[in-house]
Simulated scan of single mutants.
Amino acid sequence: MTDFNLDLAPGEFVTLLGPSGCGKTTVLRTLAGLEDFESGEILLDSRSIARLPAHHRRIGLVFQNYALFPHMSVFENVAYSLRLRRVAEATVRSEVATALAAVGLDDYGPRLPGQLSGGQQQRVAVARALVMHPDLLLFDEPLSNLDAKLRVQVRSELRRLQRRLGTTALFVTHDQDEAMSLSDRIAVMKSGRIEQVGAPEEIYARPATLFVAQFVGKVNALPAGVVGEPNGKVEIELLGTRVRAPVPSATFPKDVLALLRPEAITLGQPGEGLPGRVEEIEYLGDLTEYRVRVGDTVLTAVRSALGDSWRIREGDQVGVGFKEQTIHLLPRSDSNA
């Protein structure tokens, strides 16, 4: 890990997002005290915990596979860490009951993990972490073993639970939908470094690098040239036409990349914009995705699959336009993915 620095505010839900092997889980395990590091510092409430053993750090960790003991009841799974610390039995029962109530499993104490759904097992794992009253709660891709529908349901439950309890949380995933729906802020990682930290809307609409833009959603990255700055806008030459984009926050060179999300590409009747030809169509349920050739460039555009006033077919000629207010510019020289 190099040049890694991240601050979490009390009660904040932050997600480390990035491809496999970028260092996300290493960060979590280092925070939890399960891995050593050569240099740097770990501060929790302004005090150093870098040299504390894991069981003294007041950090809870929810593993990817939940790591529940199959032969133990839900109650005993949650009570396990308390029993290791030889906590009095009356306190164990009180603390476990409180933790199970917090995750909505008050009556599930006698059951075995095998008798629970995947979502319920995930909540048991959260309760086991909560029972120690952690100052920080870590999640290592805890939804990856669930099917798609249950994953959406459980992540909503998890977010509501975290907001209600006010526990500071750091979540690891490579799933952009999870990161977008769960997070107050997202830290996008690449090769052990943070590429950008920001709110989900900022990460999506104003990515700091081409890597971030391409990892978080789909994007059309088009070479363009700045030709003027009239009336608070930047005028760029793009695909042989001139369009106006929002002014970047920093001074930019003449050679730029214009980033347009697929929903920023409009498709109309021939003559309504640049001439394009539809090469491929992919039906996605709620959306239809189009690959449209404009000159030598293939663009990706999306439209709602419902309520279209006219149906577009492969081979059709269309007019291609841009929602100019959504164009985001990057210096072309700094845009390596």
Rank of each mutant, 00 (worst) to 15 (best):
M1E: 07
L6K: 08
P10E: 07
G23T: 05
K24D: 00
L34A: 13
E38Q: 15
E38C: 10
I42A: 06
L44K: 13
D45H: 13
R51I: 03
H55A: 08
R58T: 01
Q64H: 04
N65D: 14
V74E: 09
R86S: 08
T91D: 15
E95F: 03
V103I: 07
P110L: 13
Q115D: 12
V124T: 02
R128P: 08
P134L: 02
D135E: 14
V152A: 10
V154A: 13
E157T: 04
L158A: 12
A169K: 09
H174S: 04
H174L: 05
K190D: 07
G192K: 06
R193T: 11
P200C: 14
F211A: 10
F211S: 10
V212I: 00
A213Y: 11
Q214H: 11
V216I: 12
A221S: 04
G228R: 05
P230K: 05
N231D: 15
L239C: 03
G240H: 06
V243C: 10
S249T: 08
A250P: 03
P262L: 06
E263H: 14
P270I: 02
G273Q: 11
R277Y: 03
E279T: 14
E279D: 15
E279M: 15
Y283W: 08
L287E: 12
T288L: 01
D296K: 10
T297R: 14
L299M: 10
R311G: 01
G315Q: 05
D316C: 12
Q317P: 00
V320K: 13
F322E: 00
T326V: 13
R332S: 06
A337T: 15
